[in-house]
Design a binder for these strands. Structure first.
Length: 630
DNA sequence: AGCGGGGTTGACGAG
DNA sequence: TCTCGTCAACCCCGC
């Protein structure tokens, strides 16, 4: 028998790099000159069950996968994106054997969950004699290198990032998409299919049909196809934003075609109220899913900027941090912070960089792991009601509600809009833990990037990165700066569409006669939607002026106490002794009579009773709102 | 070391 | 309509 020459048999594991352009890892795989190459995506129980993922982001992911698969097939009609419905930790050892795999190649991912996952996958591969190649590709700089260059410390300011970036030099140019792709090998699946536990399923509530994520390894048709929303039991997406590398490249080209826009971009001047078109590039979700390479973005923009600088123009090119490139550097900063801090970066507890503030609705902590459980303590019933009304766009402040409704229906709001709602929920209104807001964003944002989300929430809540808590966004004054006529509110809070410009941001100031004339009365807490032909919009759920002062006082006090998340007294609950009135100074007046006060005072570790009460007070918004009625 | 200037994106009133 | 100072005062950074 003649000896068969066997070249590398490579699995390229697509994760957060759903693209063919600008992929250093894919280039590394192709440089192996594989005999066969399977481009795979593994169905991840973390993504399906353990992380909050709304339908809009699911749709975006599936768009990206479909587009990638089609692009692969265009280059090699025998190939596609092989979507395999099993977690990598259990699937790969079996797949390595069945497909006689010699190499596993993937792009490095420093997200806290991904680190743990990849560590075990690398070990499994080594045990199976499979060589692993990991390449940087998701960020301009390897977050670990960024941290190393920053003296081993988390990157907590943009100047630190800029200093390290200067040392490391400019990122490499993007790698073009491959012109040819090797054939995949056979795809036998003669092994057991291990299905992960669907308990807990954090996304259970949103599912409409049967959830069949793991029904068969190669999908319902046995063809490894990208799943449909129906296969996942998910309702149809409502977002107009669609994913996929083809769209990403088109959009990037569109942005860069407008050279003045690209070269003179100034983030703080982008109107959060602009829609159709939005003021910013809408490329963030593409970066998140890797349907756009970060070096592709960087260099296409940088080339425009360099060209602009050579010419004579009335408006000068902008510089980081406000320029378009600057926005990418902030992303690097958050990835660097996450890389250095690990899991605690996503919570207050045990986070050495995050200030401790005695917020309402704090996260519950697993004492063994010191990690947030995903659940929280309802230490104020008023706060819980406010949280639910915030999350559903029923605060009674049209600017806040418009943003939250846009977020829920479209999965994207402009960055300054995120500032407005985040400030309102935390230090500038409700005094609710930033971790609650981060949870909601993580479910609803199509561009949810774990590191950026945690970092920005800490920024806005003045617990890390930013400290000027006396700069507080007003839900009335701030939007007026951008949109005097309130067109943004009229679009997303249509019941107020006929209100006058003067009243649009504070409809409660309209006379009863005007309210009726304009077809919408202001009353209640958001439960009642209409009264005959009239629409009903809620009264403001708090007195903003009063709350701003109370929050400011609370922030000042907390800064004075000066605790960080890793302080022993934060970890063991004795922090309460350091705050006057056991940190209840920021509670609303009518809250004092509720059960919240004694609960906090009597229980040094907010567990047990609080947990039970939470179930009573949580559930749906309707439930909460009903309970609020006296 | 300690001081002063700056910090991608506040509100408000005076002039 | 715009710019500026004030509000009360945060941390980072460089000299």
């Amino acid at each position: 028998m003649s000896k068969q020459k066997v070249g590398p048999r490579v699995i390229y594991w697509h994760r957060t790099d759903l693209r063919l352009h600008d992929s250093p890892a894919l280039k590394a795989a192709l440089d192996l000159k594989p005999e066969c190459l399977w481009q795979c995506w593994t169905w991840d129980s973390h993504y399906v069950y353990r992380a909050r993922n709304g339908p809009n982001r699911w749709q975006y992911l599936l768009d990206c996968q479909k587009d990638l698969s089609e692009s692969i097939t265009k280059i090699n009609s025998k190939s596609k994106l092989f979507v395999i419905r099993e977690g990598p930790q259990t699937l790969f050892p079996k797949l390595f054997k069945a497909w006689k795999v010699s190499h596993l190649v993937f792009e490095k991912d420093t997200d806290v969950y991904a680190r743990d996952r990849d560590e075990s996958v690398v070990k499994l591969a080594e045990d199976a004699g499979v060589k692993v190649i990991v390449k940087i590709g998701r960020t301009l700089y390897d977050p670990d290198e960024l941290v190393k260059g920053n003296g081993g410390k988390p990157t907590m300011s943009i100047s630190q990032v800029q200093a390290v970036a200067k040392k490391l030099g400019e990122p490499p140019r993007p790698i073009p998409a491959p012109k040819s792709l090797p054939d995949p090998g056979d795809t036998p699946l003669d092994f057991d299919h291990e299905k992960p536990s669907a308990d807990p399923d954090l996304n259970k509530q949103m599912r409409e049909g049967m959830e069949r994520s793991f029904s068969a390894l190669s999908g319902p048709n046995g063809d490894f196809a990208v799943p449909s929303m129906e296969e996942l039991g998910l309702p149809a997406a409502t977002t107009p934003h669609r994913g996929g590398e083809s769209l990403a490249l088109k959009r990037l080209a569109l942005v860069c075609k407008d050279k003045e826009y690209t070269a003179t971009f100034e983030k703080p001047k982008c109107a959060p109220t602009d829609f159709d078109p939005a003021a910013t590039t809408l490329l963030s979700a593409h970066l998140h899913f890797g349907s756009l390479g970060i070096r592709e973005f960087y260099w296409r923009v940088q080339d425009v900027v360099d060209e602009w600088k050579k010419g004579k123009h009335k408006v000068q090119a902008t510089q980081p941090p406000t320029s378009l490139i600057g926005q990418l550097l902030f992303r690097e900063m958050y990835f660097g912070a996450q890389a250095a801090l690990g899991h605690p970066f996503h919570q207050t507890h045990n986070n050495p960089q995050c200030r401790f503030i005695p917020w309402h609705l704090p996260s519950k902590i697993d004492p063994k792991t010191k990690l947030a459980t995903g659940d929280y303590t309802v230490n104020s019933r008023t706060a819980e009601q406010q949280f639910q009304r915030w999350a559903h766009g029923l605060t009674g402040f049209p600017w806040i509600d418009a943003l939250m409704r846009q977020l829920r229906s479209e999965g994207w709001i402009e960055h300054l809009g995120r500032h407005a709602v985040a400030c309102f929920l935390t230090r500038g209104g409700c005094y609710i833990s930033w971790e609650r807001g981060a949870d909601v964003f993580s479910e609803l944002l199509i561009d949810h990037e774990a590191a950026c989300n945690a970092g920005n929430w800490q920024w806005l809540s003045c617990t890390a990165f930013f400290a000027q808590f006396f700069r507080c966004y007003s839900p009335v004054a701030f939007p007026k700066k951008w949109d005097k006529k309130g067109e943004f509110v009229r679009k997303y809070v249509p019941e107020l569409a006929k209100y006058s410009d003067k009243c649009i941001y504070e409809p409660w100031t309209a006379s009863a006669a005007d309210q009726r004339k304009w077809g919408c009365v202001i009353r209640g807490d958001g439960e009642e939607k209409e009264d005959g032909k009239l629409k009903v919009y809620p009264e403001p759920m708090l007195d903003f002026g009063e709350r701003r002062d109370a929050c400011l006082k609370g922030m000042k006090e907390s800064y004075g106490v000066g605790l960080y998340g890793n302080d022993k007294r934060v970890m063991d609950g004795t922090w309460r002794k350091l705050f006057p009135d056991d940190a209840e100074g920021v509670a609303e007046e009518h809250d004092a009579q509720s059960d919240s006060g004694d609960e906090v005072k009597s229980s040094p570790k907010p567990k047990g009773a609080a947990g039970k009460r939470r179930q009573a007070g949580q559930g749906t918004l309707d439930g909460v709102v009903k309970k609020a009625k006296k």
